[in-house]
Design a protein around this nucleic acid. Structure first.
Length: 214
DNA sequence: TGGTTGATGAACT
DNA sequence: GTTCATCAACCAG
Protein backbone atom coordinates (compact mmCIF):
# COMPACT_ATOMS: atom_id res chain seq x y z
CA UNK A 1 0.00 0.00 0.00
CA UNK A 2 2.87 2.33 0.66
CA UNK A 3 5.76 3.34 -1.52
CA UNK A 4 8.39 1.89 0.76
CA UNK A 5 11.02 2.28 -1.94
CA UNK A 6 10.11 5.60 -3.47
CA UNK A 7 13.24 7.60 -4.15
CA UNK A 8 13.92 10.98 -2.64
CA UNK A 9 13.57 12.74 -6.02
CA UNK A 10 10.18 11.05 -6.52
CA UNK A 11 9.02 12.16 -3.11
CA UNK A 12 10.34 15.68 -3.53
CA UNK A 13 8.48 15.96 -6.81
CA UNK A 14 5.26 14.99 -5.05
CA UNK A 15 5.86 17.77 -2.54
CA UNK A 16 6.75 20.28 -5.22
CA UNK A 17 3.33 21.83 -5.81
CA UNK A 18 1.21 24.25 -3.86
CA UNK A 19 0.59 23.18 -0.28
CA UNK A 20 -3.12 23.08 -1.14
CA UNK A 21 -2.46 20.37 -3.72
CA UNK A 22 0.05 18.46 -1.64
CA UNK A 23 -2.13 18.26 1.48
CA UNK A 24 -4.14 15.16 0.43
CA UNK A 25 -0.89 13.33 -0.28
CA UNK A 26 0.51 14.09 3.15
CA UNK A 27 -2.60 12.99 5.05
CA UNK A 28 -2.04 9.39 6.08
CA UNK A 29 1.70 9.63 5.44
CA UNK A 30 4.14 8.23 7.96
CA UNK A 31 6.96 10.43 9.25
CA UNK A 32 9.77 8.80 11.22
CA UNK A 33 12.50 10.56 13.18
CA UNK A 34 15.40 8.42 14.36
CA UNK A 35 17.58 9.48 17.28
CA UNK A 36 20.00 7.84 19.68
CA UNK A 37 17.03 7.28 21.96
CA UNK A 38 15.10 5.39 19.30
CA UNK A 39 12.57 5.97 16.57
CA UNK A 40 9.17 7.62 16.66
CA UNK A 41 6.79 7.32 13.74
CA UNK A 42 3.71 9.48 13.34
CA UNK A 43 0.85 8.94 10.92
CA UNK A 44 -0.24 12.40 9.86
CA UNK A 45 -3.97 13.06 10.24
CA UNK A 46 -4.27 16.84 10.07
CA UNK A 47 -2.35 19.58 8.25
CA UNK A 48 -2.70 23.27 7.51
CA UNK A 49 -1.59 24.91 4.28
CA UNK A 50 0.35 28.17 4.20
CA UNK A 51 0.79 29.72 0.81
CA UNK A 52 3.70 32.08 1.12
CA UNK A 53 4.10 35.86 0.93
CA UNK A 54 0.57 36.38 -0.40
CA UNK A 55 -1.03 34.53 2.50
CA UNK A 56 -1.74 36.93 5.38
CA UNK A 57 -1.72 34.03 7.82
CA UNK A 58 1.73 32.85 6.85
CA UNK A 59 4.98 33.59 8.61
CA UNK A 60 6.29 34.37 5.13
CA UNK A 61 3.74 37.16 4.66
CA UNK A 62 6.24 39.90 5.39
CA UNK A 63 9.00 38.35 3.39
CA UNK A 64 12.02 36.31 4.25
CA UNK A 65 13.56 36.56 7.70
CA UNK A 66 16.16 34.58 9.58
CA UNK A 67 13.39 32.60 11.25
CA UNK A 68 11.40 31.61 8.18
CA UNK A 69 14.27 31.25 5.71
CA UNK A 70 13.71 27.51 5.45
CA UNK A 71 10.23 28.08 4.04
CA UNK A 72 11.83 29.79 1.06
CA UNK A 73 14.06 26.83 0.37
CA UNK A 74 13.43 23.62 -1.55
CA UNK A 75 10.52 21.26 -0.89
CA UNK A 76 10.84 18.41 1.55
CA UNK A 77 12.64 20.27 4.29
CA UNK A 78 11.39 20.95 7.81
CA UNK A 79 10.51 24.46 8.89
CA UNK A 80 10.51 24.35 12.70
CA UNK A 81 9.66 27.52 14.57
CA UNK A 82 9.40 28.47 18.20
CA UNK A 83 6.33 30.25 19.49
CA UNK A 84 4.56 31.38 22.66
CA UNK A 85 7.84 31.19 24.49
CA UNK A 86 7.67 27.44 24.88
CA UNK A 87 6.37 25.54 21.89
CA UNK A 88 7.83 24.25 18.64
CA UNK A 89 5.76 23.56 15.55
CA UNK A 90 6.88 21.84 12.36
CA UNK A 91 6.03 22.39 8.71
CA UNK A 92 7.01 20.44 5.64
CA UNK A 93 8.08 22.86 2.92
CA UNK A 94 6.33 22.44 -0.45
CA UNK A 95 6.61 24.15 -3.80
CA UNK A 96 9.63 25.34 -5.66
CA UNK A 97 12.51 27.12 -4.04
CA UNK A 98 11.55 30.70 -3.28
CA UNK A 99 7.80 30.05 -3.11
CA UNK A 100 7.56 29.66 0.68
CA UNK A 101 4.51 27.42 0.66
CA UNK A 102 4.28 24.64 3.20
CA UNK A 103 2.15 22.44 5.39
CA UNK A 104 1.96 22.72 9.17
CA UNK A 105 1.74 19.29 10.79
CA UNK A 106 -1.21 19.84 13.09
CA UNK A 107 -1.91 16.35 14.38
CA UNK A 108 -0.98 12.72 14.00
CA UNK A 109 -1.18 9.30 15.52
CA UNK A 110 1.95 7.78 17.00
CA UNK A 111 2.18 4.38 15.31
CA UNK A 112 5.67 3.46 16.50
CA UNK A 113 7.83 4.49 19.44
CA UNK A 114 4.95 5.47 21.72
CA UNK A 115 7.08 4.80 24.78
CA UNK A 116 9.75 7.26 23.68
CA UNK A 117 7.12 9.79 22.66
CA UNK A 118 5.56 9.53 26.13
CA UNK A 119 8.96 10.14 27.72
CA UNK A 120 9.41 13.29 25.69
CA UNK A 121 6.09 14.71 26.79
CA UNK A 122 6.37 15.79 30.39
CA UNK A 123 2.70 15.53 31.09
CA UNK A 124 1.47 12.02 30.59
CA UNK A 125 -1.40 11.74 28.22
CA UNK A 126 -3.32 8.99 26.55
CA UNK A 127 -1.62 7.63 23.47
CA UNK A 128 -4.10 9.49 21.31
CA UNK A 129 -2.97 12.76 22.85
CA UNK A 130 0.71 12.15 22.15
CA UNK A 131 0.70 14.00 18.83
CA UNK A 132 -2.66 15.75 18.92
CA UNK A 133 -1.89 19.39 18.23
CA UNK A 134 1.07 20.89 16.38
CA UNK A 135 3.27 21.53 19.41
CA UNK A 136 2.59 18.11 20.86
CA UNK A 137 3.34 16.45 17.53
CA UNK A 138 6.66 18.26 17.30
CA UNK A 139 7.51 17.31 20.87
CA UNK A 140 6.57 13.66 20.35
CA UNK A 141 8.88 13.49 17.33
CA UNK A 142 11.67 15.23 19.22
CA UNK A 143 11.77 18.26 16.92
CA UNK A 144 13.15 21.64 17.90
CA UNK A 145 14.86 24.62 16.31
CA UNK A 146 17.98 22.54 15.69
CA UNK A 147 15.94 20.48 13.22
CA UNK A 148 14.91 23.54 11.26
CA UNK A 149 16.04 23.07 7.69
CA UNK A 150 16.47 19.30 7.98
CA UNK A 151 15.57 17.21 4.95
CA UNK A 152 12.75 14.82 5.82
CA UNK A 153 13.70 12.71 2.80
CA UNK A 154 17.10 11.89 4.25
CA UNK A 155 18.61 10.47 7.41
CA UNK A 156 17.60 10.69 10.24
CA UNK A 157 14.11 11.15 8.84
CA UNK A 158 11.92 8.95 6.72
CA UNK A 159 8.74 9.98 4.95
CA UNK A 160 6.38 7.42 3.45
CA UNK A 161 3.51 8.80 1.41
CA UNK A 162 0.41 6.78 0.64
CA UNK A 163 0.21 5.42 -2.91
CA UNK A 164 -2.79 7.56 -3.64
CA UNK A 165 -3.77 10.89 -2.11
CA UNK A 166 -6.46 10.57 0.54
CA UNK A 167 -9.93 10.77 -0.94
CA UNK A 168 -12.39 11.61 1.85
CA UNK A 169 -10.47 14.65 2.97
CA UNK A 170 -12.29 17.25 5.04
CA UNK A 171 -11.31 20.89 5.04
CA UNK A 172 -12.15 24.00 6.98
CA UNK A 173 -10.76 27.21 8.45
CA UNK A 174 -7.30 27.25 9.93
CA UNK A 175 -6.84 27.29 13.68
CA UNK A 176 -5.29 30.09 15.65
CA UNK A 177 -4.83 32.31 12.62
CA UNK A 178 -6.00 35.85 13.26
CA UNK A 179 -7.93 38.05 10.87
CA UNK A 180 -9.59 37.06 7.65
CA UNK A 181 -6.86 34.50 6.96
CA UNK A 182 -8.37 32.30 9.67
CA UNK A 183 -11.94 32.39 8.36
CA UNK A 184 -14.01 30.33 5.96
CA UNK A 185 -12.57 32.38 3.14
CA UNK A 186 -9.32 30.50 3.64
CA UNK A 187 -10.40 26.86 4.26
CA UNK A 188 -6.86 25.64 4.22
CA UNK A 189 -6.91 23.13 7.07
CA UNK A 190 -7.21 19.52 5.93
CA UNK A 191 -7.88 16.43 7.99
CA UNK A 192 -8.92 12.79 7.70
CA UNK A 193 -12.47 11.85 8.72
CA UNK A 194 -13.17 9.88 11.88
CA UNK A 195 -9.71 10.42 13.33
CA UNK A 196 -9.70 10.81 17.11
CA UNK A 197 -6.30 12.51 16.91
CA UNK A 198 -7.58 15.50 14.95
CA UNK A 199 -7.62 18.56 17.15
CA UNK A 200 -11.09 19.83 17.85
CA UNK A 201 -10.90 23.51 18.48
CA UNK A 202 -14.30 24.18 16.98
CA UNK A 203 -16.61 21.65 18.57
CA UNK A 204 -20.18 21.35 17.42
CA UNK A 205 -21.95 24.47 16.40
CA UNK A 206 -20.44 27.85 15.67
CA UNK A 207 -20.39 30.16 18.62
CA UNK A 208 -23.31 32.51 18.89
CA UNK A 209 -22.26 36.12 18.74
CA UNK A 210 -21.79 37.30 22.28
CA UNK A 211 -23.97 40.11 23.41
CA UNK A 212 -21.89 43.21 23.94
CA UNK A 213 -22.74 45.69 26.63
CA UNK A 214 -22.52 49.27 25.38
C1' DT B 1 15.45 50.45 22.25
C1' DG B 2 11.19 49.06 24.02
C1' DG B 3 6.33 47.23 23.73
C1' DT B 4 3.37 43.88 21.66
C1' DT B 5 1.97 39.69 19.72
C1' DG B 6 1.73 35.09 18.36
C1' DA B 7 0.28 28.82 13.10
C1' DT B 8 -0.12 26.67 21.71
C1' DG B 9 -1.09 23.73 25.50
C1' DA B 10 -1.81 22.88 30.37
C1' DA B 11 -3.74 24.03 34.56
C1' DC B 12 -6.72 26.46 36.60
C1' DT B 13 -11.89 28.48 38.28
C1' DG C 1 -14.23 29.54 29.96
C1' DT C 2 -9.91 31.80 31.55
C1' DT C 3 -5.03 32.38 32.74
C1' DC C 4 -0.37 31.79 32.28
C1' DA C 5 4.17 30.21 30.84
C1' DT C 6 7.84 33.05 28.46
C1' DC C 7 10.81 34.32 23.67
C1' DA C 8 11.79 35.71 18.88
C1' DA C 9 10.08 38.79 15.26
C1' DC C 10 8.05 42.75 14.23
C1' DC C 11 6.84 47.63 14.49
C1' DA C 12 6.82 52.26 16.46
C1' DG C 13 9.53 55.82 17.83
Amino acid sequence: MNHQNATAPDLRARLGGSALDVAPSLLGAHLTHSTDDGDVTVRITEVEAYLGPDDPGSHAFRGRTARNATMFGPAGHLYVYFTYGMHYCANIVCGDEGWATGLLLRAGEVVDGAGLARDRRSHPATDLDLARGPARLAQALGLDRRKDGADVLADPFRLVLPDLPATAVLRGPRVGVSGVAGTEEYPWRFWLPDEPTVSRYRPGKPRAARKVDP
